[in-house]
Nucleic acid binder design. Structure first.
Length: 350
DNA sequence: AACGTCACCAACCGCCTCCCG
DNA sequence: CCGGGAGGCGGTTGGTGACGT
């Protein structure tokens, strides 16, 4: 059985579009005096040439006195993400947990901000789980930018990272992550996210001592804002006595439900020991270089760290990446990154 | 300065749910 | 129990301003 539209066809001359201050005033005056009552009859009584639905929406989303305007706080953002992970797109339900915020406002905020963040973090905004398609590797581009800004890495570090990603792309990232997990789960990140697994085979997951949230980070929208991240297990490596730059990507291993941003890093769980890689590179010729994933069996912490050795910088890097990214990424983007990473302002000196 | 692109968000549209007679 | 209507909800659109070229 069909249902007549809210505003019937004989109301075709009803006004639509943005509300004027005069209309707002009429609506406010009427509701303040009489309450909204029946929305369908309200516009007539209030002297408005609008349909009742439009009036209700205007009131609910804009004129209501308890509406909180302005930017969403970090706490609100976290709350939205957490609620969304359990409630889904139930904006009105979510709105009940955020006093003063409307479902429409939350929905808009989700679509324009949070959704993008999750995508950039390699997470499916609908499921909050890691995306399984290779497109999420695109997000690692963000890591390079983020790593640069957060850690001021030098060009070789960024290039190494690019090469690593390239390597991962051709060497089944899923296999690597499954190996890190020590199992072949269909959803290899599950353990990390629910806190039951760790990259560390024989140890409880270390708790990050400090973790800057994104909005507080060097760059907004950056999940590499782990600048200042101090893992108890990794801190000894941060100030490696090696003269080479040490670049870490990741890795909080405990799922923190209060932190939207830890999830993402768990997804990739990459350790990049730049100093090590560089020493590998200088002894390896392009002709004989191979790509391999190896376990660092001599690590004193007896953990399942993985590293990748890669060929020295090759001139086809941009082409490789363009091939990987298809038409979605233009090479100037990468040139920009390398230009950035060549900045002499790096505080980490080799 | 002009134009194009992008991000944001208010508002609309149409379906769904609930309530009442 | 059923049908109809009002309100609620979520997806989508389009206007606008900011920013880049």
């Amino acid at each position: 059985m069909g249902r007549s539209p809210c505003c019937s066809s004989d109301d075709a001359n009803l006004k639509k579009g943005p509300w004027t201050p005069e209309e707002d005033e009429k609506l406010l005056d009427y509701i303040n005096t009489h309450g909204h009552g029946n929305w369908k009859t309200l516009p007539k009584h209030a002297g408005l040439n609008r349909c009742g639905k439009s009036c209700r929406l205007r009131w609910a989303n804009y004129l209501r006195p308890d509406i909180k305007r302005g930017r969403f706080s970090e706490e609100e953002e976290r709350l939205i993400v957490n609620l969304h992970s359990t409630l889904g797109n139930k904006w009105s339900k979510i709105a009940t947990y955020l006093p003063g915020r409307t479902d429409n406002e939350i929905k808009n905020f989700w679509n324009t901000h949070i959704r993008k963040k999750l995508l950039n973090m390699g997470l499916d905004p609908n499921t909050h789980k890691p995306r399984t398609d290779l497109n999420h590797l695109l997000n690692l581009t963000q890591l390079i930018c983020a790593a640069h800004s957060a850690l001021k890495v030098q060009a070789d570090a960024a290039q190494l990272l690019q090469k690593l990603i390239q390597t991962l792309n051709t060497n089944q990232l899923s296999t690597i992550t499954a190996g890190l997990m020590g199992s072949q789960k269909s959803y290899p990140y599950e353990g990390l996210i629910n806190g039951t697994s760790s990259l560390y085979a024989d140890e409880p997951a270390p708790v990050p001592q400090k973790f800057h949230s994104m909005s507080q980070g060097v760059i907004d929208n950056s999940w590499a804002s782990f600048e200042g991240y101090e893992s108890p297990d990794m801190s000894h490596k941060v100030n490696n006595s090696s003269s080479h730059t040490t670049l870490y990507i990741g890795v909080p291993l405990n799922f923190s439900s209060s932190s939207l941003f830890t999830i993402h890093i768990q997804v990739f769980s990459l350790f990049i020991f730049n100093d090590f890689l560089i020493s590998e590179l200088v002894s390896e010729s392009p002709e004989t270089a191979t790509t391999s994933m190896n376990q660092m069996g001599d690590d004193k912490t007896n953990t399942n760290h993985y590293y990748s050795t890669m060929s020295p910088a090759d001139t086809s890097m941009f082409q490789a990446w363009e091939k990987l990214m298809g038409d979605e990424t233009d090479s100037s983007f990468w040139k920009d990154i390398l230009d950035l990473t060549s900045s002499p302002s790096s505080p980490i000196q080799r």
